[in-house]
Design a binder for these strands. Structure first.
Lengths: 187, 187
DNA sequence: GTCTATAGCTAGATAGAC
DNA sequence: GTCTATCTAGCTATAGAC
């Protein structure tokens, strides 16, 4: 029983970095081993089912982080909606590193990937919509408007990440976050 | 000099289909050969520089189609702006098959890909923004508003394609196109 | 121009020493 | 738990017949 060379938390963060940058098929075990500092065989010890299990673990780990940091803020009934949103947007900036990092959903939905991860992605997107829907209701929007805004917010985040990356202009992402903030400030 | 088994046009369409579905690294020469009906060696005869040349050709072919079908409509000064947009949106529906097909930019920007195609993607995105900017000016928006709407339109298209695919709901894409139409209908 | 066959390499995954 | 060494299958790309 030798000690772990890298903690689960740091291991998942390293795997996530590679998967988000290169996609599921684009990320090789060599890439993953180098980024984590482990050998390929050691990765198989941690994730016996191989690369798919690594990716699933990254998805789950990310989902938990998002739930605890972003959704928890959005649905925190002890704060005013406007404050909740500001706090959530700060965490969103962190999650995507100001637009430099892509979304795991995108990284795992390309390639043969959609069939491998489509349930997790669909579930995750619905969670985002639900959380923003709660915020919309708390802002006293109508149910219809709350749903519409929640979907548009998800589209804005995903779209601005793509465009910011493609144009090489992080300001595109930042401006979109500001736009989202304004959207929930008006009755 | 045997006759070509498949025309350049159809060949590029088949390659595009595979690349858009699987991404650059996810698309294997075996996949590309099967979809085109040619053997791998025959693909190398058509594209001597290999897979990268196939992808570059797909990008260029798509760019030309978009220029002739979408940008030409948006900037057609012989028609009213509203009519131009309606016609362009019809072509956009065709390009993305109502939301079923992903964007080549997305397919080629994941993985080690961004470094391979970033110039083409950046250039292509700027073309989209420029074309919608022309439409905004023709709609008599201010320069600032025209630019802002053009960027938002690109974000909406990219974002709604991701979300529609992820949620398995093509209506998300269709509703976004309607939203874009409304955006350019109001002064 | 298309094909079969194959080279050369890297992928994901495993065996077994320590 | 991590490592080195290795397996097999798949990859991109090429050689040469027709």
């Amino acid at each position: 029983m030798r000690p772990q060379k890298i903690l689960d938390q740091d291991l998942l963060a390293a795997l996530s970095k590679v998967f988000r940058a290169k996609g599921y098929e684009g990320a090789s075990l060599k890439d993953l081993a180098e980024e984590t500092g482990l050998q390929k065989a050691s990765l198989y010890h941690r994730f016996p089912k191989g690369k798919k299990e690594m990716a699933d673990s990254v998805l789950e780990h990310t989902d938990q982080w998002v739930q605890q940091n972003i959704f928890a803020e959005l649905t925190n009934e002890s704060l005013k909606p406007k404050i909740r949103l500001t706090k959530a947007l700060t965490k969103i900036r962190t999650l995507y590193e100001g637009g430099k990092e892509t979304c795991v959903f995108r990284a795992f939905s390309m390639e043969s990937g959609l069939s491998l991860f489509e349930q997790s992605i669909k579930h995750g997107m619905n969670e985002w919509i639900n959380a923003f829907n709660v915020l919309g209701i708390a802002t006293e929007f109508s149910q219809e408007k709350a749903e519409q805004y929640a979907l548009q917010t998800l589209i804005d985040i995903q779209g601005s990440l793509i465009v910011a990356k493609g144009m090489g202009d992080l300001q595109v992402f930042e401006n979109t976050l500001k736009k989202i903030e304004n959207r929930y400030s008006q009755p």
